[in-house]
Computed example of a mutant assay.
Amino acid sequence: MVWNRGFGQVKEERKTLSFFKIFQSADLSSESMRAFPYDFMMNVSKEDFSNKMVIRAQWGGSWEVDISKNPRFYYMEKSGWNQFVTDNALGANEFVTFTHKGLMCFDVNIYRKNGKEILVPQKPHTTTPFSGIKKEEGERSYKDVKNEDESMGGGVELAAEAKTAKTKKNAVEIGESSRGAALRNKKAEKIKKKKAVPKFKITIKKSYLKILGIPKNFYEEYIKNGSMVYKIRHPEGEGSWEVLCLGRKTQTIFSSGWSQLAREYPLSIGDRCTFRLIKPTEFVLTSRKAKEEIIVID
C-alpha cells in the first residue's frame, strides 16, 4: 500500500488544537481581540495556561506573550501582543491561524486578504510626510543658499528668516498633532463603547427555574430572529447547554433546555445572574449566590 504523505499530514494536523483571528478591527489591542476562544480554553489544561505563550512565524521570528485571566476568559497581555501585531504590520484584513504545539507554543500562518500566505517578514506600514523634497536634500539646499548668500553679504538675514519659519512650522505641526491625537482618542472611545459585550441581568424567582423571560429592551435590540437555539456556557468551562429562545407576541423566553441548565448549573432562587452575548448565538452565564437570611424567632 502506498502511503499518501499529504493525507498523513492533514490527518496529523486534525489532532492539534488551533484557532484563528481576522485582523480587520480598528482596535487590534482590544481585550476581545486578545482573548482565547472558549472552545480552545476547554481543551487546554489550566497548567498549560500558566506558561508564557510563544508565537512562532513561518520564517523563524518568534514573540513571547504573557497570559492573564479575568472572570470570563484567558487573554494575551498587551505588550507582547502589540509587538507581534506591529512587527508583522497586521491590520489589513489578514487571516491568521494559531496552531497549538504544546505548552502554549503556537505556529502562526498569516494570509493576505486575497488568500495568499505571507512567508517572509512584512515591512511595517509607514506614513510619508507631505513634502516635495527629502529632509537631507532640504538641509543641503539651505546650506548651499546660505553659503552663496554669505559671499554676497546677506547670510545673517537669511539665517534669521529660516529660523523664524522653522519655529512657526514646528508650532503648526505640534498643534495639528494634538488635535489629531484628540480625534483618535475620541474615535477609539466610540469603538470601545460599540464593542462592549451586550448583557442583561436577572434575579432568579421560582418560576424562572422552568422558563426564563428575557427583558424586552434586550431582545428588541440584540435578538433579531423570532425563535432560535442559543448556546449558554459556564464561565469556568464547567458545561454548556443548548437552549431554545422562543419569540412570542408579548415576550421572548428561554424555554426548551432552560430547566436542564438551571438544574445542572445549578441555579437557585435569589441567585443574581448576568447573561453576556459574546457571539451572535452564544451567551456566557455568570451567577452570584443569594446570601442566606438569618430569621430570629422570639
Results as ranks from 00 to 15, higher is better:
1 M>V: 12
2 V>E: 13
6 G>F: 11
9 Q>V: 15
15 K>Q: 09
17 L>M: 02
24 Q>G: 13
26 A>Y: 01
31 E>R: 14
37 P>R: 07
39 D>S: 09
42 M>V: 09
43 N>D: 11
51 N>M: 14
56 R>C: 15
61 G>Y: 02
62 S>C: 02
63 W>K: 08
83 Q>M: 07
83 Q>E: 04
84 F>L: 10
90 L>A: 03
95 F>V: 01
102 G>F: 03
103 L>F: 13
105 C>K: 07
106 F>G: 04
108 V>P: 01
115 G>M: 05
116 K>Y: 05
117 E>S: 13
118 I>E: 06
120 V>L: 14
121 P>S: 05
125 H>N: 09
126 T>I: 14
127 T>P: 01
128 T>M: 14
130 F>H: 10
130 F>R: 13
131 S>I: 06
138 G>K: 02
141 S>Q: 10
144 D>E: 15
148 E>I: 03
148 E>K: 10
148 E>L: 10
149 D>T: 11
149 D>W: 02
154 G>T: 08
169 K>N: 11
177 S>I: 00
179 R>V: 06
182 A>N: 06
188 A>W: 00
188 A>Y: 11
190 K>N: 10
191 I>N: 00
192 K>G: 08
192 K>E: 04
196 A>I: 11
197 V>G: 04
197 V>L: 10
197 V>Q: 05
203 T>Q: 04
214 I>Y: 03
216 K>F: 13
220 E>F: 06
223 I>S: 00
230 Y>F: 15
231 K>L: 09
235 P>V: 02
236 E>F: 04
242 E>V: 03
245 C>H: 03
249 K>D: 14
253 I>Q: 01
256 S>M: 03
257 G>D: 07
265 Y>I: 06
267 L>A: 07
267 L>H: 00
271 D>C: 02
274 T>R: 02
275 F>K: 06
278 I>H: 04
282 E>V: 09
286 T>E: 05
288 R>A: 09
289 K>R: 15
298 D>H: 08
